[in-house]
Every structure is written in C-alpha cells, then in structure tokens.
Amino acid sequence: MAKYKIVHYLNQFFGGIGGEDKAGCLPEVREEAIGPGIAIAQALGEDYEIAATVICGDNYFGENLDEAADTIVEMVKNYRPNVFVAGPAFNAGRYGVACGTICKAVEERLGIPVLTGMYEENPGADMFKKDVITVRTGNSAASLRKSLPNIVNLIRKMAAGEEILGPYEEGYLERGIRVNYFAQKRGAARGMDMLIKKMKGEPFETDLPMPKFDRVPPAEAITDMKHAKIAVVTSGGIVPQGNPDHIESSNATKYGVYSIEGMDSMSPEKFTTIHGGYDRQFVMKDPNLVVPLDVLREMEKEGEFGELVNYFCTTTGTGTATSSAAKFGDSIGKKFVDEHVDGVILVST
C-alpha cells in the first residue's frame, strides 16, 4: 500500500478524451494515473499513488464554474488524498484558469494541500499564483520533463507537511507574498552594490520589482462633436446569436466585428453575450446595457454627434491575457484610423 494518495486533475486533451471538439465534456473520474500523471507517479516512486484522475472539458468548466467546482470537489473528497495536483496547464489559458480555480476550491473547502503548474504568461497564472503554488513550466507539454523534478519535490514536501522554501529554490511562480529575512549585508550596503552594478551597466536584481506599466497617453479631446464619427468597442462579450466566430467566453484569442446597420437598438433575438465573468441574465434580456445602441441612435438623430459607425467590435475581457488585449487594441485602432473614426466608446463589464 502506498503511504500517500494523490488525486490528479486533467482537461479533456491531457485526459485523452479528445481535442477542442470534446471541450464541453462533463467531469468524470478514472481510478488510475493518466497522461502526465503516469510520469508524475513514476517519478514519485512507490510510496505515492495517484488514486484517481478527474477529467473535465475546458469549455464545460469555463462556462459552469460553480457547478464544475462543486462536482469536482465532491469527487476529490471521496478519495481523501494527501495532495491534490492539477495540470500542469503549460500555456493553455482556459485549462490554466480551470486548474487554478479547482485548486483554490479544493484547498479552501477540503483543506488539502494543492499544486498546479503553468507557463508564466498563462492568464491562469496571473489570476491564481497568489493563492496556489504554481510550478513554473515551459509553454508546451514538451517541457514537462524539465519541471517534473520540482513538481515531484513539492508533492513530497506537501504530503509530509515539510516547509516549502522560496520560489527560486522550489521552482514555482512568485506568489507576490513579501516575507522578511535577515540579509547578509545591511540595506545601505546592498543598495550600494546595486548602484555600482547599475552604473557599470551590469545586471542586478532589485528587491522589489515594480508592477508593469502600460500607460497610453489620452488622445486629444474632440473639438467638433456635432460632426464626430463615433464607434463602440466592448469587452463585454456581446455577439450575434450563435456566436458565429466562436469567441471564447474567457481568455479570448480573437475579437469580432458585427454590423448594426439599420438597427435602432440591440434586440435580444439577434444578440446575446458569451462572457464567462458576470451574471449574464440582464444583458441577455437587454444587450443595450453593454452596447448602448438605443441611446446612441437617439443622440445621433438629435444631432449630438455626427454619425455612429455601423458596426461594433467585441471580445471577452475575463481571463484574457493582456498581450492578447493589446493585440486586439492595435488592430481595432488601425481600422478606426483608416476609416477616420473620431471617437470610441469603450464599454467594459
């Protein structure tokens, strides 16, 4: 009998069920190690056993966060594992968010130590690295071999209740928790060492990395509103019924451009929202709450501004990587410049 039991979480792809077409599959349990779990179990040795693997489709999880989490927590509970492991998700965004969500839920509700692994640019890493120990991985499954020793070492420590050291020693993503320690040298001496390196142009390591800044200077104010051409852009996930371009409900990789020509308001028969990050019921009843076409048309008629651009641009903001958002912004911006749009209303949710 193994000393320690582990439950492992995988998505439909790593669980061997199928690709994107199977992303809607419901959570299920298999009492064996599967896919990356086999490598983890082997590396852990005979004192450890993957008692069960829970597999769930990424889309199902993303669209039914609460239900999925409830179901999976119940599944995990039955096995009373010593450690719960999810992924690694590498650079798969929805998978990353699912791993983070389920780890957090298992730890909070069952009090079991949890562990996941991700590429640092995975949107799930940003959302959950504060709460969940997330082993640093490469951006594809090919990198598993490299991160495996760290995963295995952390599982062992968690199972035995041993102290987990810092992110650099253990190979997990920094959680952003500031912890005191007594350094070898005092602050003034460390500052001076840093300054000497900085002046020489040599690499140095700051004690406190600054948050990343991406400030865009505001555009000049519109001087002639009466003749201004105005467009609407939203991250609120408004799409035509049927979501023809398959924009993701979280961690979007694309945006859509949809016509509003000849319409006086956003009708719920024609439009809906696929946003996975807010309660959609009010917006599904009245999409004008996010794309305020009704009011804009009135103002257009009254001559408050020149004309409304006959389409809107849309994506989902939730869990979307800032690098993707910046890419969408550049592309939408170029289109507007080419078409001489004077002003844009950005509707967030």
């Binding site: 810092g166 320690y181 003034a188 406190l208």
Partner: peptide, 12 residues
C-alpha cells in the same frame, strides 16, 4: 528605510 538594518523582504 535608510538601510541601517540587515532586515529585508523578498518575494515568495
């Protein structure tokens, strides 16, 4: 905050 002590904080 003038670096008199050896106490420091690091990210975990």
């Amino acid at each position: 905050a003038n670096g008199f002590n050896t106490l420091a904080a690091k990210g975990y």
